[in-house]
Simulated scan of single mutants.
Amino acid sequence: MPSVFSPEDAIWIQDMLMKLRPTVRRKVALKYAEAYQIAFDAEMVSYKQDNCGRREANTRLRNFVDTYAEASDGICQPAQAFKGPQAKGLGQ
């Protein structure tokens, strides 16, 4: 688990981290805490700080897991077929 996070997000964070390889989890947890703290400190209004930190860190974690979790397990989609300039009428 990250060193800094909102207790309300603990179960969700743990679920997201479990989708990643064990070798990546620690680094992602450190980056989560870093993103949370930077956003928290950047917000000037005290009662908005926690929400700002949560939003930034959770968004980054969700995007990272959605993008890289399957790829790190070797699951990937086939590449799209390349359509050269002739296909668009630009090769002349």
Rank of each mutant, 00 (worst) to 15 (best):
S3P: 02
I75D: 00
L17F: 09
V45K: 02
T67S: 00
D41Y: 10
V65Q: 00
V45E: 10
Y36E: 07
F40S: 11
E34R: 12
D9A: 06
A42E: 15
G89M: 14
F82Q: 09
Y36K: 12
K48F: 05
Q92G: 13
F64Q: 01
P2M: 06
R62C: 00
P22N: 09
Q92H: 06
M16C: 08
Q86S: 14
A81V: 13
Q37W: 04
R55I: 09
Q80F: 01
K27V: 14
Q77W: 00
A33N: 05
I75W: 04
K27F: 13
Q80S: 08
A71F: 01
R54A: 10
I75E: 04
Y68P: 03
M18W: 07
V45R: 04
S3H: 01
G74Y: 07
M44E: 13
P78Y: 03
G84I: 10
D15A: 14
Q80P: 02
P85W: 03
Q37C: 01
L20Q: 15
Q77N: 10
A87N: 14
D15Y: 08
K31T: 08
A10T: 13
A29V: 11
R25E: 14
R62F: 05
Y36W: 15
T23Y: 11
V24E: 15
P22V: 15
E70I: 08
E8Y: 07
I75R: 07
P22D: 15
D50K: 04
S72F: 10
D73G: 01
G91Y: 13
F82T: 06
D66G: 04
T23F: 04
K31I: 11
V28D: 09
R21V: 10
R54L: 03
Y47L: 09
P2G: 07
M44D: 08
N58E: 00
K48C: 00
Q14G: 11
S6T: 09
A33P: 05
A29M: 10
T23P: 03
P7Q: 14
A57K: 10
Q77F: 02
F5R: 15
R26S: 15
Q49P: 07
E34V: 00
T59C: 02
P7I: 07
D41G: 13
V24L: 12
G89Y: 12
Q14C: 05
I38D: 05
L30H: 09
A10F: 02
D9G: 14
M16E: 14
Y32S: 04
I38F: 09
W12H: 03
E8P: 04
M44N: 06
A10V: 08
E70A: 12
S46E: 08
T23L: 15
E70D: 06
C52D: 02
V4I: 12
P85I: 06
Y36I: 03
Q49W: 02
Y68A: 02
G74D: 11
K27G: 11
T67W: 00
V24F: 04
K31Y: 13
A79T: 05
S3Q: 10
Y36Q: 12
Q77S: 07
I11E: 10
Y32W: 15
S46V: 11
I38Q: 13
V24T: 14
S6L: 02
